[in-house]
Amino acid sequence: MEKLIHLTLRVWRQPGPDRPGRFHDYPSGPVATSLSLLELLDLVNERLTLNGEEPIAFDHDCREGICGACGAMVDGLAHGPKSETTLCQLHLRDLADGGLVVIEPFRALAFPLIKDLVVDRSALDRIMAAGGYVSVDTGGAPEANVIPIPQSDADQALAAASCIGCGACVASCPHASAMLFVGGKVSQLACLPQGQPERARRVLAMVSAADREGFGACGNHRECEAACPKRLSLRHLARMNREYLSAR
């Protein structure tokens, strides 16, 4: 027999960017602990729809922690209390029976609210568009061992590339800084030969794009690293700082 628990969801409801928002409580009734929190929101939305009420708007897509679409603050923590997971991977078994679960949207100047728990994270796309790519023509695929890349560099580039762009770093940072996000891409491409020709231009353009969007400055609080579902290390941020200072 599956374990059942009762929760009260306190969800931020806001009809639109220009309308005032407030918390609304939704008792879950008895629910199986194998449910994910997003599935519980689906359940609440079904009830709301049947009652003719507006369902809770929230972002989601793959629901297996790889796309970066979902994200909200659960009890004050980006993606909820479980570490190294996205919101969609948070299950009711990770929450206390009978508890109150406060769900709030990611908040930052650069993440304007669209509706309820949905925020506009396109600022991250614009940072990427400023330089988070390789545009030089690298020709056809060369013979595999022509360009030697140390294993440690390849490992670091791969770790940095694991960012899914969910925005949890920004949401959890006391300064709403996006520097772990920027640092991941800068570090990834700085580690690999393909990234070299645009190395200096890239870091300057991406940092200045992040500043333009209104993200805060990094104060090394380490909240981003702790909240990151892919556990991107602060070392990428240190490398970005190094890249930036040597590019100037």
């Binding site: 930052a108 100047l109 104060g219 609080h221 909240e223």
Partner: peptide
């Protein structure tokens, strides 16, 4: 600059590492 980066504070905020 940092004070402007989150005009609307969280109603509930917990700390993980800071």
């Amino acid at each position: 600059h940092n004070l402007q980066s989150r005009p609307l504070p969280y109603r509930v905020k917990a700390i993980r590492a800071a």
